[in-house]
């Protein structure tokens, strides 16, 4: 078997294993979904009037704020779901079965690839679930063209892939599940200090660079533009660049951590 065929076959076996875990023990993924859903409902139904009044210069009603909020919450959903990936990688690495995999003549990277592909699929499923809730509370993206929809989907996949590789790296350097969920905290913290809830120019000047120079803000702005037709500007390229950089960084980091002698 050629090494590529071997890699594909072993990785899909590992993916099946991870999906089996996720299907049999869905509570981890579902728990992580609570944060974005709660924040979505909180900011729409509790703070919604004040937020839209503040942002829209007083004129906007609550449905405008729903439209503004949802793209950020979708990206936050991805961040939250990847924390689960960090936790499950850290848990997995403490299992004897991983030692067994390491002593088998299988594609070396298949363990990690299985985790990554599984997590990206879970991210997309989570995004769909949160998206359905968003639709139920009044979010509409009817102005977007099919092309923009496809681009939005591509962005969600790319962003999931980037954060997952980083989360896998975080999971690999964590000695246990607790440490992994602590180490992966930035993945849910960064979207809170991005443009998820308010635009950049509504933030204090000293804080704007913090919100601007991180992966969530350009990704959210791009998604918002694709779904709602707002200005994307340079954010599109920035988002893609962030995704590619994080993917490459996370990939090499994870690979190096995994190839190190196990504890």
């Amino acid at each position: 078997m050629s090494s590529l065929a071997l890699a594909v076959r072993d990785s899909s076996t590992m993916l099946r294993r991870n999906l089996l875990h996720a299907r049999r023990y869905p509570s981890l993924t579902l728990n992580l979904l609570l944060t974005p859903i709660m924040l979505l409902l909180l900011f729409v139904y509790i703070f919604g009037d004040a937020m839209s009044a503040g942002i829209g210069g007083g004129g906007a009603d609550r449905s405008d704020y729903v439209a503004y909020l949802v793209p950020g919450v979708l990206m936050m959903t991805i961040g939250g779901t990847t924390i689960g990936s960090a936790v499950s990688v850290a848990t997995d690495m403490n299992e004897g079965i991983i030692a067994r995999f390491r002593t088998m003549a299988i594609h070396r990277g298949s363990v990690l690839i299985g985790h990554v592909v599984g997590c990206v699929l879970q991210c997309l499923l989570s995004v769909i679930l949160v998206g359905v809730i968003a639709l139920a509370i009044g979010f509409r993206s009817t102005d977007a063209t099919v092309l923009e929809w496809i681009a939005a989907f591509g962005l969600l996949v790319l962003f999931s892939l980037a954060l997952t590789w980083i989360a896998v790296g975080m999971g690999l350097i964590s000695p246990n599940a607790e440490a992994a969920s602590n180490n992966a905290l930035p993945l849910i913290f960064l979207p809170l200090i991005s443009t998820t809830f308010v635009p950049l120019d509504a933030m204090p000047g000293w804080f704007q660079p913090i919100a601007e120079y991180q992966p969530f803000t350009p990704a959210i702005e791009t998604l918002r533009g694709l779904l709602l037709g707002t200005e994307i500007g340079h954010n599109g390229w920035l988002a893609v660049a962030w995704c590619l950089a994080l993917t490459v960084l996370g990939y090499f980091w994870s690979k190096a951590s995994f190839n190190r002698d196990p504890r």
């Binding site: 099946r16 294993r17 089996l20 079965i97 030692a99 088998m104």
Partner: peptide
């Protein structure tokens, strides 16, 4: 190994089929 290298989250049969796939 000293500590059983089985996947505790899946069934015994699934563990066996996992090995069969990896071989």
């Amino acid at each position: 190994g000293q500590f059983s290298a089985v996947d505790g989250l899946i069934t015994g049969e699934e563990n066996m089929l996992l090995m069969a796939d990896l071989h």
